[in-house]
Design a protein around this nucleic acid. Sequence first.
DNA 1: TTGAAAGCGCTAACAG
DNA 2: CTGTTAGCGCTTTCAA
Lengths: 340, 340
Amino acid sequence: MPNILDVALKARVSIATVSRVVNKSHHKVNRATQERVLKVIRELDYRPNALAKGLLMKKTMTIGIIIPDISNPYYAEIVRGIQDVADQAGYAVTLHNTDKKPGGITRYIYLLREKSADGIIFSGGIIDGPETVSILKELKERVVVIGRHEVDFPAVMVDNVGGAAQAVQHLLDIGHRRIGFIGGPDGSTTALDRLAGYKKAMAKSGVMAAPGLVKKGAWTPESGYLLGTELLKGKGRPTAIAAANDQMAFGAIKAARALGLAVPKDLAVAGFDDIPLSSYFDPPLTTVKIPMHDLGAASMKMLLGLISGGKFEKMKLFRTTLQVRGSTAEPQKKESGKKS
Amino acid sequence: MPNILDVALKARVSIATVSRVVNKSHHKVNRATQERVLKVIRELDYRPNALAKGLLMKKTMTIGIIIPDISNPYYAEIVRGIQDVADQAGYAVTLHNTDKKPGGITRYIYLLREKSADGIIFSGGIIDGPETVSILKELKERVVVIGRHEVDFPAVMVDNVGGAAQAVQHLLDIGHRRIGFIGGPDGSTTALDRLAGYKKAMAKSGVMAAPGLVKKGAWTPESGYLLGTELLKGKGRPTAIAAANDQMAFGAIKAARALGLAVPKDLAVAGFDDIPLSSYFDPPLTTVKIPMHDLGAASMKMLLGLISGGKFEKMKLFRTTLQVRGSTAEPQKKESGKKS
DNA sequence: TTGAAAGCGCTAACAG
DNA sequence: CTGTTAGCGCTTTCAA
């Protein structure tokens, strides 16, 4: 791999001159010299070493993303949004999955610090404990978070409370009263907010939310299936289920089918997120749409603002929109729908 | 951010000594000195600068992944597999999406070279042209590819021909004769191989594959829907469709439903990949399972072998397994199934 | 318009 | 066992 000295020698100039033409510096360089250098650069296929440059300039044009799991379509979509604007701005992105790894978050933060990342985008996931929070608080890194967190960083947020309320309200509006809720895990503020939205809508309509109707899942279709089965087999079966994400909603639908219940006839199901495949399901899933790609893009724009040191909105809130599709319908007439 | 000199000064030792304790060097360090240094490191929260280290050692502990699109569950799963073993081995991963970007591949290769990535994993995607191929050929970087490519690199491969043949053979076995195929785009070797598998199985059974029954899609559910509609509306409607990936299969199923056709009663549909949600569909999708996570993991292990310079398999082939689920069934009796 | 030289933070060879 | 020093490849004063 040729370096700047190789170029300089071959072009019979100093490395300073090479540097100037490579960086299109304002410092004037003779036209002829410039072309000679450019020619050698092409011949040698020279590329400046980003490590050396980064070391000197304290800027690496790299940012890190910390998420629970890239194989979750929700995060995949967000990451794509981040990358699209990062790439445009000349930034590379390193990816870090925290799930199933104790102390993952702090580990990655330190890693990114060592690598001199220019910034970090942090989304979702469970903050392991107060320790993590205090570490986060003292972070000197430039950080943007997606979603609500217990720490004060510039943030891109989603109205999860309102979104969940929308979904539940829809269920209420079409006549459901016994509405089950499959939520997310403890420690997730997103899970907390979506549960709050459920409770809010229920309370507003004066409907009792039986404690047995609320379950805590793990965001996966498997957990949706498990919890859906519990809900459906328990006493006082709900006529509708709102799930805190689409994957769990799919699990719940599968559970219903396994018990001989038709969706939406015997059970209405609503999801959350609107992942790409949701509208292709049968029945197409009624869900609360989050503009995931935009979420990612907005967070990266915010980080760019932070990095450049200019002014920028410290907070951006995205509203959700309810997508009413085939998986929800009004409950069957009074006689409780036994198995056909 | 404290550097090695700050630590050295505060601990009253030389930077060499600090370096030795940080790197657990074999070079002996007095026990007491060591503890003094360790204490200062903790006090200052010192972390070695990876850029400086990388510059000197010519090793960055970072590898790059070049794929078409992370929001495609197929790639997301592969990337997760890569990351799991990379992370374990102490490597960070940068992600690069090439789709919809002319010249993307070469651009990212150069970027990765500038950043001194220790290796590159390259999966899927269309090689823009002969130019890209020749650039790839001259690459001095350590590269592992996933899938078949026109270039000779260590590779992790999938038996796409055999897999597609499996799916089509299954359709044939249960009695279908008019079998449509929704393939991938031109320029993708994966698409080529899956199409070849379709043709192979058809030929083997002596069944004519009418040219009008073969379509080329773009891997997306939308294109599956479009092409499925074409297939179903055309003359001599197929009784079964094999799609080159699950997303297009879902699109085709949606198309069938839109035309009042029941799956699998009026139309059998098989997919390819077995993405996480496929078994949750209604009907659960019959598909050719690829161990995507393992594919990613294997590619990273191979790259680790390449990097360490040891011996390792230059090629690893993964077999596919057919998952027969609810979306395929035998064709209806002779009388061509009109709308009910 | 060009070049010499300092220095970013680190490791390792060498000397003591 | 510890320290001094060269140098990884680059940008940027400063001088010419």
